[in-house]
Design a protein around this nucleic acid. Structure first.
Lengths: 331, 331
DNA sequence: CTGAAAGCGCTTACAG
DNA sequence: CTGAAAGCGCTTACAG
């Protein structure tokens, strides 16, 4: 930077001004500086500005598991925004609930401009408290527990599950099974509640053997299907808390020679890539994941700029029921 | 750090030694320093050490597209290694071929300890040259073009495609179609060559209408299937360059009422998660993606430590044919 | 609109 | 085995 300043005949401070888009730099000096900088291929050092200034140009994305279609969408969306505003993404994995050691390690060594949390760690109190203590603006995608001081972006999980269940009921189903999601995810509870409420609303009994555990994985979907299809009184429809599990259920049903949706209707949640790849394609709830991630990013960056008011009201996005071929009217 | 030094009654340099695992620190001072540091919750600042020292504790992962099962595996594997050695991952997206502007922006501002490249940018000469010029140790996963000064981790794509094609031939197929991958990926060419060579080796003619374009996407697999199944003289088997495309072909075949594998055998490549989810499950080539990513990471970190010799010999990993249900003997 | 000085929190290169 | 000094490349807080 000192080279640029010297060759442009200005002080370092003025060069700094140009690269930080500050006002009060005369057009000619600005032009000259940009010219010299381009020639020298100069870019302000990330490490140096992070150390010297209040901004670090680094955003953190804390995830539980970096795999899967959902997190891929989040990642893509956030990476897009990072590029747009010229900052960089550091991804950190937090597997165990409240891994304090790693948390302190990361939060004490890296200066973040903002941190974005995905489920389930967006509801981990240890993580939230540590973040709060560190003062880093934080956004939570699909969070459950409240934290008024952090950006929150969600859909109405309860309502979505409620509507999907109602849809199944409207198709004539009464024996509707439900496969729960990973209990560590807040959405799991909301989706289950939505299912139960819809059943009750329509005067249908929720039999406990019709509500089985799941972990959002394909394998757990298969296991749930095994349990459900071994029942004396089998369900005519299964609503799984996500598409991966729904795919597992679909696979097991077919292996047993059942026709889907004729003999068993299956509904999922998320509208993962897989939902339109399996056959029959899954009827599911589509949530605008990329839009939510983008919103989380943009809002948390505004927090940083001090517009705390509207930013901290939860941003609730709309979902939609995608009716494909895995659900049919009960014969 | 100066607080830690003061409270432990040593100089900052000694504290620094402890946190960098340098030798020559007496056990008692080391113990004292660690105690004080734990109490103060001290961690060396990433930004400060990056600026002051030769190491930055930052590894870059440059990708074309952060989505998909393949890159998820790479990401997970690398994140694991980062955690193990205490460094951090910055993900950067390079979409357009040789996006020099972004390249210079990133390479000039961030000091990386190493950069890991995935396909197709691991074969982008502009990227390679820029990396070389910047002197950052670089690893390439599934690279095609040679670059003797960079770590390279691959499988024998040619041989894998050759063997899969031979397998199809051994199952009695002669009319074997091939769906190419994205031509920007080096592996696409190798896989096609493997297919062609196997056909020739067994005295089978490669009809040009039996070799169709693809882009590694589900949609392109569907398009390829449309073309192939519209042929007068239809193939009895299709070998797709990856599982996503194979899934697209499978879907189209089924929609047309064809039985897979009875009327059409389908083989894929990669052993993506999707390969065992669709039904019938796909016969495919399994490559050890996570192991490859881990190796790339470990080798490039060794480069950094100066062991240039063995490190720069390409690390060729073994693939395996996974025979599932999408391929059958020709009736 | 511009700049000189200090300092961010570490590591380096030395010296002992 | 240990430490004092300088410096990494920027931004901050001022002053003009």
């Amino acid at each position: 930077m000192s080279d640029v300043a010297r060759l442009a005949g200005v002080s370092m401070k003025t060069v700094s001004r140009v690269f930080n888009n500050e006002k009060y730099v005369s057009e000619d000096k600005k032009k000259k500086i940009l010219e010299v900088a381009a020639e020298l291929n100069f870019r302000p050092s990330l490490q140096a500005r992070g150390l010297a200034g209040s901004k670090s140009y680094i955003v953190g994305l804390f995830v539980d598991d970096p795999s899967g279609d959902y997190i891929s969408k989040v990642l893509r969306s956030i990476l897009n925004r990072c590029e747009a505003i010229g900052c960089h993404l550091v991804v950190e994995v937090f597997k165990e609930q409240g891994d304090e050691a790693k948390l302190r390690q990361v939060l004490n060594s890296i200066k973040f401009d903002a941190v974005i949390l995905s489920a389930p760690i967006c509801d981990d109190m240890v993580v939230l408290n540590a973040l709060r203590a560190s003062g880093v603006p934080t956004a939570r995608i699909a969070a459950g527990v409240t934290a008024d001081d952090m950006v929150k972006v969600t859909i109405d999980e309860f309502q979505a599950a409620f509507e999907m269940t109602e849809y199944l009921i409207s198709m004539g189903h009464e024996k509707i099974a439900f496969v729960k999601g990973d209990p560590n995810h807040a959405c799991s509870v909301d989706r289950e509640r939505g299912y139960i409420r819809a059943m009750q609303t329509h005067g249908l009994r929720v039999k406990h053997e019709m509500v089985v555990a799941g972990m959002f994985s394909y394998a757990s979907g298969r296991a749930a299907a095994e349990a459900l299809l071994a029942l004396e009184d089998k369900p005519t429809a299964v609503f799984a808390s996500n598409d991966e599990m729904a795919s597992g259920i679909l696979a097991v049903a077919r292996e047993r020679g059942m026709k889907v949706p004729e003999e068993l209707s299956i509904a999922g949640f998320d509208d993962d890539a897989i939902a339109s790849i399996v056959s029959p394609a899954l009827t599911t709830v589509k949530q605008p994941v990329e839009e939510m991630a983008r919103t989380a990013f943009d809002l948390v960056m505004k927090t940083e700029e001090g517009e705390e008011d509207a930013v901290l009201t939860p941003s609730v996005h709309s979902f939609s029921l995608v009716k494909r071929d895995s659900v049919a009217k009960l014969a």
